[in-house]
């Protein structure tokens, strides 16, 4: 199941936010969307999830225009985790994760749904927190619960908008490692697209990188090929270096 954007342009109040984005993402692996603040990363992710109507161009999932796919079917094909994690209702972690199954059962959960929720709780190590309410969790624990909800949706594509923002290095690496494993488990491998600011995490876990700058595609390709000091310096308009430590490339601002 491939994900494509063809000449995708998005405007907000008449101002272009994304212009002429052409992308083709093969299934499997982790794709990181990086770029400076205001580059249009979250907008691209929301457009890929079908939540924003393109001003021009199209988003295609497996060759089908996303705007022609019914919301229910779309929710069974791709899951989106947004940055906003406010919920008015008083939910436990297990309740929240169970919502990930809604596109499949539409309010009538069955055995398969309960098994998927249990699997998500186990995969993200949330067993001890399952009965706790969201307002009793730390920012990082909350973040993990929301990622688990997106996982429980069991969609071929998982789109995550800055899921690491509230996490300390341990939990950030832990979640990325789990996502990395999920994107490589044979025929059931999930394809993960993630908006991220941590270039170290990107270099360590992402298979592909998409660079956005000023609403335009700055570059897209294999992580190892693209993330050079010259490319990153031009992307962020600030001196960047890539150091090699223990055989791993670690980008940093010089």
């Amino acid at each position: 199941m491939t994900f494509e954007t063809c000449n995708l342009s998005i405007t907000r109040d008449g101002v272009p936010v994304l212009e002429g984005i052409d992308l083709s993402l093969p299934p499997g692996g982790i794709t990181a969307i990086i770029g400076p603040n205001g580059a249009g990363k979250s907008t691209l992710l929301h457009a890929m999830a079908g939540l924003l109507s393109p001003h021009a161009g199209a988003v295609r999932l497996n060759g089908r225009d996303l705007s022609g796919i019914q919301p229910g079917e779309r929710a069974r094909s791709l899951a989106l985790l947004t940055q906003d994690q406010g919920v008015t209702a008083r939910l436990t972690v297990a309740d929240l994760i169970a919502f990930g199954r809604w596109p499949h059962h539409q309010g009538r959960p069955g055995h398969e749904d309960r098994a998927a929720v249990a699997d998500a709780i186990e995969t993200f190590d949330l067993g001890p927190l399952a009965a706790r309410t969201l307002d009793a969790l730390s920012g990082g624990q909350r973040q993990r619960a929301f990622v688990a909800m997106a996982y429980a949706q069991t969609t071929p594509w998982i789109l995550l908008d800055e899921p690491l923002s509230a996490l300390d290095p341990r939990y950030a690496h832990d979640i990325m490692r789990r996502l990395h494993d999920l994107s490589r488990t044979g025929p059931d491998a999930r394809s993960v697209v993630i908006v991220v600011h941590d270039l170290g995490v990107t270099a360590r876990f992402a298979d592909r990188v998409i660079g956005l700058k000023d609403g335009k595609l700055f570059g897209a390709g294999e992580t190892g090929d693209l993330m050079t000091s010259d490319w990153l310096t031009r992307l962020y308009d600030t001196p960047m270096e890539v150091a090699e430590v223990g055989g791993r490339k670690i980008p940093f601002a010089a």
Partner: peptide, 16 residues
């Protein structure tokens, strides 16, 4: 129940 999660989250779960 799904609508109570908020507009964006509900839409990502396929709710009209």
């Amino acid at each position: 129940d799904v609508a109570a999660l908020g507009r964006t989250k509900a839409q990502t779960l396929g709710l009209p």
